[in-house]
Structure formats: C-alpha cells, structure tokens
C-alpha cells in the first residue's frame, strides 16, 4: 500500500479516473441538484413514491438469483465430476447463448411465451389446454359459469421477467461455482471419506463450505445486473409493472424526463447493492481466504 505507483499504472489510473470516478461524481452532483443547478435533497424525498418499484425490483432479482443458484449449483457440481472432454463441451454449450445478442435472446423468449406463441401452440396442439379446462371446470364452484381459456397467460407476467433474468444470467452463476469446485483438491474428498464421512457428509462438510466463495461471486454476478435490468422487464413483463431499470430509463429517455431524479434513484440503488455485497462478503470471509491460500 505504501509503495509509490509505478509509471506503468498511470494509464489505468487515468482510465479509472475518467470512466469510473468521474461518472460517479457526476451522478452524485446530479442527484443533489435541481434543474436550475441549485443544491437540493428534493430528488431523494420524491423517491418515497417509488418505494414499491424498489421492493419489486429487489424481490424479482432475489427470486431470479435464488433460482439461478438452485439450478446452477447442481449443474456445476455434476459437470465438474465428469471427464475433461465432457466438461469442455458442457462449458462451451453453457456460454454459447452469451455470444448471441442479449436483445435477440429476449425477443426469442417473447415469441415463445406469447399468447399465440410457440409454447401456447404446443399446449393447444397436444390438448393440454383442453385438459386444463376440463379439470378447472370440474373444480370450479359453478361449473356452468366456467369460461374456458384459449391460452395460458405467460407473457407480460412477473414470472416471465424472472424467467428472462434466469435465462440470461444463469451462466454467471455456473461459471464461478464450476471453477471453484473443479479446482478442489481431490485428496480432500478422499480424506473426508477416510475419516468416516458418507457422501452426504462429504458434500455438506467439505464440498459445500469450500465452494462458498464461488457461490458468493455467482450471487453477486447474477443479482447486480438482475436488479438493474430494464430490457427484460419491458419486453417480457409488458412494461406495466415498472422495475428500477425502467424507472431510471424513463427519467433519461422517457416522457417523464428528469435526469436529477434518475441520478438519485441510481445512487440509492447503488448504495443498497454495495451494502448487500458488503454483508455477503463479511459472511463468506473465512472461506474466501481459505481458497486463495
């Protein structure tokens, strides 16, 4: 910490000053000023009306992160147990969608989930819709009054938004967990078995705690983009139930033009995320060190 900066680090210092520090300062200045340039905290007071948007964003991002973890951990675990050839192919397949444009992927989901989209056509063709209708009519309080549905409502729901998040961010959960489990010293697992641990205990007492750093970085890499996403919610969520990303976008590009409010919302969101991450890192400190060493 004490030693002087080497001159090779100067380009990076300039880069960070220009593209990291300066934008943050600008966001702070905007957030604490009004349209005529005077200092104000009005932007923050105004924000209370958007508390529901904050809550919704964090809730959906949290659900998406949890689902990513529940899907991603087992995938990483089982891939890392396979042969090297399988691992390579599996990793390419997992990353392949990321090489395609994000908007394109999300558009594809739209055409799958739409009311007359691929999935609903499939349900109609296979008679699943009819089956559902007859079961629902049977259990309805008044079977005669039951209105049969023609499709399942999937697009424009919060479920679709979560699905979009999970689909887009799942690789960011799998990769760090996989790399931690894959690098785990095999003799540790042999040692645990040698000391009397059955498979369940080997996992719970050795593999799981040692993979925590990967889990933590996976959670960070999924949660942060998920909480601030805007394209997914407008495209798959119908744009009626706003998320933080949409709200901020509206302040800069939309009808309710107010960059000062937008900056304030961004700042608050950033602070909440940073606090969340700090708490998480505190929680995983011991394990992280263990793997680095």
């Amino acid at each position: 910490m004490k030693n002087k900066l080497s001159r090779f680090s100067i380009p990076y210092v300039i880069w960070m000053a220009l593209f990291v520090v300066a934008p943050i300062i600008m966001v702070v200045i905007y957030a604490f000023s009004s349209a005529d340039g005077r200092f104000t905290v009005e932007n923050f007071l105004q924000m209370s009306s958007y508390a529901v948007v904050f809550a919704r964003s964090f809730k959906l991002a949290l659900i998406a992160t949890l689902i990513c973890l529940l899907i991603g951990y087992p995938i990483s675990y089982f891939i890392s147990k396979e042969g090297i050839r399988f691992q390579q192919v599996a990793m390419v397949l997992i990353m392949l969608p990321m090489w395609m444009n994000f908007l394109l992927r999300t558009y594809s989901w739209m055409s799958i989930l739409e009311n007359n989209g691929l999935l609903n056509q499939f349900f109609q063709q296979t008679g699943i819709i009819n089956l559902y209708n007859s079961i629902a009519a049977h259990f309805a309080a008044d079977p005669t009054a039951y209105e049969p549905i023609a499709f399942f409502q999937m697009i424009d729901t919060q479920g679709a938004v979560v699905l979009g998040m999970v689909y887009n961010y799942l690789p960011f959960m799998i990769l760090p967990i996989y790399s931690v489990i894959g690098k785990m010293d095999h003799s540790l697992l042999e040692a645990a078995r040698d000391l009397g641990a059955n498979s369940a205990n080997v996992f719970r007492r050795v593999i799981l705690p040692l993979s925590l750093p990967g889990v933590l970085s996976g959670i960070t890499m999924v949660f942060v983009p998920a909480v601030s996403t805007f394209a997914i919610s407008t495209m798959l969520g119908g744009g009626t139930k706003l998320l933080l990303g949409d709200l901020i976008e509206q302040q800069f590009l939309g009808g309710s033009y107010n960059p000062h409010l937008g900056a304030a919302i961004s700042l608050v969101m950033m602070i909440i995320v940073v606090v969340c991450m700090l708490i998480m890192n505190k929680f995983g400190e011991g394990e992280e060190q263990a793997v680095i060493l």
Partner: peptide, 11 residues
C-alpha cells in the same frame, strides 16, 4: 490415512 500432501481441510 495420512495423505501425501496432508489434505487438511482449509476451511
């Protein structure tokens, strides 16, 4: 067993 590289649990 005492393993070659000890295999102590780092956590």
């Amino acid at each position: 067993t005492v393993f070659q590289k000890y295999a102590l649990f780092p956590h």
